[in-house]
């Protein structure tokens, strides 16, 4: 049985740009899929197809058991969308915004009003409930936007870069909300450029690049592909880098293709994949000391999804580059403007 979100061979082109080039997804009910990729990878376009906002050139999508292309309005009853840009009416109060969305989900006015009150409490917006959203901080607007997506507690939620531009406290609060939703049985697809976030929240991760899913699996599976632990050393003086490299090379895991010591000269940091854990770390420190290499910092760490990403795509997640966003041409610019405002 296909999952709560299912997509097969989604293709979408904008002019010359192949934004989606055969995306397949299958998200089991009650789980979180993290769609991870750099700007322009096709994350937002995927979300826009699955939420009925744009039609793919080809392919098939089923959300909450309903065919997205054949019955878009049925799908809309069952989904909530929280975007990258807080889509709330800034001249309406928080309460009015939520009531309006409730009524447009076809709730009765009274029920919409009650639900608005509940959500305002839950999202710590009660005090600001009757102020226009214009007066809200960025974090408050995001919370309001998320609350709007949750008015009917839809079984399937889409969040497009939900934490972009949020401060750590608001980000943590959002993570709590996501965990609560999933505990309540909601299926969630979230896009993110923050690898840490996908690691933290998602059961499964799809790495997308150039409109294709280039890897999928759990965070652990993806990390395993990149190799195991690594030792990171920051030496005291630039002249010590060469000596440290010789020492570390002796500990490097051969045969993974990643056994070489990598050096970041400007921050005097050396990294080498190893096996052997904490015991090995003590030996490395002793050896470095023996050859007179002073250590500013040393640690053993597991690969992050950043490492995975660089390994898979050959380039780091480009956060500065313009996201194509499922839009063509100059239209993208206005979104970028907003993004800058939002952050």
């Amino acid at each position: 049985m296909p999952g709560a979100i299912y997509a097969e061979g989604l293709v979408k082109t904008f002019g010359d740009v192949r934004a989606l080039d055969g995306v397949d997804l299958d998200v089991p009910e009650g789980t979180v899929l993290g769609l991870l990729g750099p700007n322009g990878a096709g994350k937002t376009t995927t979300v826009r197809v699955l939420t009925t906002l744009i039609q793919p050139d080809s392919g098939r999508a089923v959300v909450a058991g309903i065919d997205v292309l054949k019955h878009p309005n049925e799908v809309r009853r069952s989904i909530g969308l929280s975007g990258q840009f807080a889509a709330v009416d800034e001249y309406l109060t928080g309460r009015e915004n939520l009531q309006m969305v409730g009524q447009l989900y076809q709730m009765k006015a009274k029920a919409a009003k009650e639900r608005a009150g509940e959500l305002l409490d839950r999202f710590r917006l009660s005090d600001a409930a009757d102020r226009t959203a214009k007066t809200y901080s960025g974090g408050m607007r995001r919370r309001l936007d998320l609350a709007a997506a949750l008015v009917v507690a839809p079984p399937v939620m889409f969040m497009d870069e939900p934490t972009t531009g949020l401060d750590p406290r608001n980000r943590q609060a959002l993570w709590d909300v996501i965990n609560e939703l999933v505990a309540g049985g909601t299926t969630l697809l979230l896009t993110t450029q923050y690898l840490e976030e996908a690691d933290h929240l998602a059961h499964d991760i799809c790495v997308v690049d150039h409109g294709k899913v280039i890897a999928r699996g759990t965070a652990d599976q993806l990390k395993a592909q990149t190799g195991g632990e690594r030792v990171e050393v920051v030496v005291q003086q630039p002249e010590m880098i060469a000596g440290a490299r010789d020492v570390l090379a002796r500990y490097g895991v051969a045969g993974t293709g990643h056994g070489d010591v990598s050096v970041e000269n400007h921050i005097r940091k050396l990294t080498v994949p190893v096996t052997g854990g904490a015991k090995l770390l003590a030996e490395v420190i002793r050896d470095l000391d023996a050859v007179g290499v002073g250590i500013d910092d040393i640690g053993l760490r597991r690969p992050t999804l950043d490492d995975v990403f660089i390994y898979l795509t050959g380039h780091a997640a480009e956060r500065e580059e313009e996201e194509e966003n499922g839009t063509a041409g100059a239209a993208g610019k206005s979104r970028k403007d907003r993004k800058e405002k939002a952050s």
Binding site: N73, R77, S78, D89, L92, E96, M100, Q103, L104, Y105, Q106, M107, K108, A111, R115, E118, L119, D121, R122, L150, V152, A153, P154, P155, V177, E180, L181, G184, G185, T186
Partner: peptide, 30 residues
């Protein structure tokens, strides 16, 4: 449990003219 419990979910759209009028008036009010 505010987020998901005891929330009836989206009612079935009535469709047709009645819904068009209702939705239009909600947006007009906004």
């Amino acid at each position: 449990t505010t987020l998901t419990d005891n929330v009836p979910g989206a009612p079935r759209p009535r469709g047709g003219v009645a819904q068009s009028i209702n939705d239009s008036l909600v947006v007009t009010k906004r």
